[in-house]
Write a protein that binds this DNA or RNA. Structure first.
Length: 841
DNA sequence: GAGCTCTTCTTACC
DNA sequence: ACTGGTAAGAAGAGCTC
């Protein structure tokens, strides 16, 4: 009998003698690596039809029939091992359900299809996956500490003796160690990055691979210039001591595997490594006939297509492979400043550090040793940054894993809807709930065709410059509504009951019970967590990007639960509930606006959960008191808070129609800090010049309260453009290619640019940012007949920029609505000037 | 072919 | 296909006279 503490990091399953086993890989507090083998009962639920028609005898005879079920699936004998009857809940409803135990989890589907009895309403719980089922059943959750005991695994499991771990234990009992007594877990992390000739997977050669860990850095390469190899003569190694030379690409791969094994990381981390580094390594290893035996059992990485957008996920047995880009995408990207999720931008935002300046060239063009050394450094820096990002995000990965309780491999890759769902699935037992099934292909099809329900309310602002503005917003608006009004699939009523919640969705009334459902109850826990992190963020003195990110990550998880109910792929899909949430949201925001206006303030803008109001000479303390009063009228966990006080704000007209534009405004606080929303300044599909000019003007106007300075400034800029004094890089327009080139019906400028790139053999796949500028039309200047797309040129293409295009389609549209607020028609002002200059000629 | 509206597409806001 | 709806705005597509 062995006893030890244990933290599971990775979960895998295998079959042995027809039964399912779990293999957990983790560590103990002494840092030894452990493999823990366990098994659990597998079963599915058969929910019985309304109990009234079912006598005890009927149920017993049904059970007897079910017990006789035997199957032979692909030579695997499986049968119903036992049947029990339980009082359960299904979608909040009390039901009698049969717990049907079977030999092998994989056969539950087969068993389910044999359960064709009229007494059975539905079959559930067989589509969770064995790992999820195991975690629920045995309550051994990833990244939690346990006191475990068992026996050392002998030869009874084939191949187990070849596992590269310190010991292997067959689990007998386990006990969770409470958080306050749990050992500290510091993961062993190794990051990696490869450099290749050619972007297409496996097409070129791998030139080098870098590895970064704590007190560890290495670049393995077989590429060097003659002068470099000369330096190795005698005792002297390469100038950069972390560079390890090998003889060829095959040996590079071998050395890489060896180095990873030697370091023995818990986490092997890459950046876009599911989509690039690991598939590339695999392709080259295959081609060269070298095994990429990274797994602790000597296995190669397993790729599956279950990932997002047809991409791959790459799993290494016993080592948790993390593609940190995927986690950034789901957990942080919405709130990030970076315009792309390139390692360069992201590391700058989170680490303040960035990639080395280096122009990647084909290896044949790299001749000098200095040039190669720069390349090594560049490669090392990339894995160094990747490591830094993982370390920054570790707390959130840990937090998410604890809350959601799925293995971190999945947590780090799944979208928010899966995270919400996994969180629900792992907490159903507390409510005695049987899990709902995944929608079928057909259900998804019809759900996707459903009519859109009405969303949030957006206030039409009156364009103008305003002074002394307060902004209120509802904290966790959607979750607070869902929790307060108990909205969910399981609380939806078929018809009105007395004392039920009522809302109108698509001209139909929907009703929800007030008996708390598991979905709103669980959501409440997330909201509270988010509240705690937000408080910690507010209390921290330092500007900590990751604290902010964490707070936002929980906000995302909470907010996603609203979207989740309207998402066609959800188990707990309920558009009535999301629709009711938006209906209720509109009611509350409008009521609050009314109260604000009746109290002698004036609402100038509102979008979804926030309201901007004029303070009308009242003091901040009075505003806060008023806010308290508004709060005292709010039900449940709904809460209105102060977003901030602002010195000035500007709202502009729409380009067409002359009415106030929604989702476009700018505010300045007393410290001079700007908050700009929706303006071209924040849009990446406008050229940098237009964005900078608009940003400067917004700042000046909000600081000064008038347009005088800005007018001068714009005139200067216009002059500079006309004199061709603008740097081309400030005129580059970036647009993302959202689908394959040939799927575009409308041939817009960025499609033309992407075609040009394709013709030049440049990579332009779905998701890449296409860059271009608009050049002077061929022929006479001023001839405006040509379509914009006919004047598109790639940044590298020689040509002059089109003065008229940049004036009339970039600079003017970006500034004219702002000047209009001051009754200045900037077009006329500039035209007037232009006419005089023309007259001068 | 000028001038208009409609459609497609991208990106923002919350 | 991988949370929801609301909205602005550019440019091409397509229509009418």
């Amino acid at each position: 009998m062995v006893k030890t503490d244990f933290i599971p990091l990775d979960y895998d399953n295998f079959d042995f003698n027809g039964k399912n086993y779990i293999r957990m890989i983790g560590r103990n507090s002494k840092g030894k690596s452990l493999c823990v083998i366990d098994t659990c009962q597998v079963y599915l639920w058969a929910v019985l039809k309304s109990p009234l028609a079912l006598s005890k005898e009927k149920i017993n005879s049904l059970i007897e029939k079910i017990k006789k079920i035997q199957l032979d699936i692909k030579g695997r004998k499986t049968k119903v091992e036992n049947v029990e009857i339980h009082e359960k809940k299904f979608l909040g409803r009390s039901v009698k359900a049969l717990k049907i135990f079977a030999t092998n989890y994989k056969d539950l589907h087969g068993i389910a299809s044999e359960l064709d009895f009229k007494e059975i309403e539905c079959r559930r719980g067989h589509d969770l996956g064995f790992v999820t089922h195991y975690i629920i059943e045995k309550k051994i959750s990833p990244l939690n500490w346990y006191e475990i005991s068992g026996e050392f695994a002998g030869a009874e499991f084939q191949g187990i003796e070849n596992l590269d771990v310190d010991s292997c234990i067959v689990l007998e009992s386990s006990k969770e160690i409470p958080l306050e007594k749990a050992p500290n877990f510091k993961p062993k992390v190794l990051s990696y990055d490869i450099e290749t000739d050619g972007i297409k997977i496996g097409e070129g050669e791998i030139l080098m691979v870098s590895l970064s860990g704590e007190k560890f850095k290495k670049v393995i390469t077989w590429k060097k210039s003659e002068s470099v190899s000369n330096r190795r003569v005698g005792n002297k190694k390469a100038v950069l001591d972390y560079v390890e030379y090998v003889k060829d690409e095959a040996e590079l791969i071998e050395k890489f595997v060896e180095s990873v094994k030697e370091f023995s990381p818990d986490f092997l981390v890459g950046y876009f490594s599911d989509g690039f580094d690991l598939p590339y390594l695999r392709a080259r290893a295959q081609k060269l006939g070298v095994p990429l035996a990274l797994g602790i059992d000597g296995s190669q990485p397993r790729f599956s297509r279950s990932g997002v957008r047809g991409g791959f996920t790459a799993k290494i047995s016993g080592v948790v492979h993390i593609d940190i880009l995927k986690f950034i995408q789901t957990a942080y990207s919405q709130y990030m400043q970076s315009e792309t999720l390139s390692l360069k931008e992201v590391s700058k935002e989170f680490l303040g550090d960035t990639k080395k300046d280096f122009k990647i060239e084909h290896s044949s063009k790299i001749q000098t040793s200095k040039h190669w050394e720069e390349y090594y450094e560049y490669c090392l820096q990339d894995s160094f940054l990747t490591l830094g990002l993982f370390e920054k995000m570790w707390q959130d990965l840990l937090g998410f894993t604890h809350v959601i309780q799925e293995p971190i491999f999945d947590i780090s890759r799944n979208g928010m809807s899966s995270n919400v769902e996994d969180f629900l699935i792992h907490n159903l037992e507390r409510f005695n709930e049987i899990p709902e099934k995944r929608p079928t292909h057909d259900e998804i099809g019809s759900r996707r065709q459903r009519e859109k329900y009405v969303g949030a309310f957006v206030f039409e602002p009156i364009p103008g410059l305003y002074e002394n503005i307060s902004v209120f917003d509802f904290t966790s608006f959607w979750p607070s509504i869902i929790v307060t009004f108990n909205l969910s699939k399981s609380t939806l009523l078929k018809q009105k009951e007395k004392n039920s919640v009522e809302a109108e969705v698509l001209d139909k009334k929907v009703y929800f019970t007030k008996t708390p459902g598991f979905f709103p109850e669980l959501l409440k826990e997330i909201v509270l967590k988010r509240k705690q992190y937000k408080k910690e963020l507010a209390q921290s003195k330092t500007q900590d990007a990751i604290k902010k990110a964490r707070s936002n990550a929980y906000k995302l998880l909470a907010n996603a639960s609203y979207g989740y109910m309207g998402f066609f792929g959800a188990r707990y899909y309920c558009p009535e509930a999301s629709g009711a949430a938006t209906a209720i949201s509109r009611r509350f925001i409008k009521e609050t606006i009314d109260k604000i206006d009746h109290a002698g303030y004036k609402t100038i803008y509102s979008d979804t959960d926030s309201i901007a109001l004029l303070m009308n000479k009242r003091k901040e303390s009075q505003i806060l008191k008023f806010l308290e009063k508004l709060n005292s009228d709010l039900p449940g966990i709904m809460e209105l808070e102060l977003e901030g006080f602002f010195k000035r704000g500007i709202w502009v007209t729409k380009r067409a129609g002359g009415i106030g534009a929604k989702k476009k405004y700018a505010l300045i606080d007393k410290k001079g800090k700007l908050k700009i929303r929706g303006f071209e300044t924040v849009r990446r599909d406008w050229c940098p010049l237009a964005r900078q000019v608009q940003n400067n003007i917004i700042r000046q106007v909000l600081e000064d309260g008038n347009e005088k300075q800005s007018l001068k400034y714009v005139k200067e800029i216009v002059k500079k453009i006309k004199q061709r004094g603008v740097d081309k890089k400030d005129l580059i327009i970036k647009t993302m290619l959202q689908k394959p080139l040939d799927e575009y019906k409308a041939i817009s400028p960025h499609v033309i640019a992407a075609r040009k790139m394709k013709d030049l053999g440049l990579p332009s796949s779905v998701g890449s940012l296409i860059e271009y500028y608009i050049s002077e039309p061929a022929g006479v200047r001023g001839m405006k007949k040509a379509l914009v797309r006919d004047r598109v040129k790639l940044p590298g293409e020689p040509g002059e920029y089109d003065i008229d295009y940049y004036l009339e389609h970039q600079i003017l549209p970006a500034v004219e609505n702002i000047f209009q607020v001051f009754d200045v028609n900037i077009k006329e002002v500039l035209d007037g000037k232009r006419q005089t200059t023309l007259g001068d000629f």
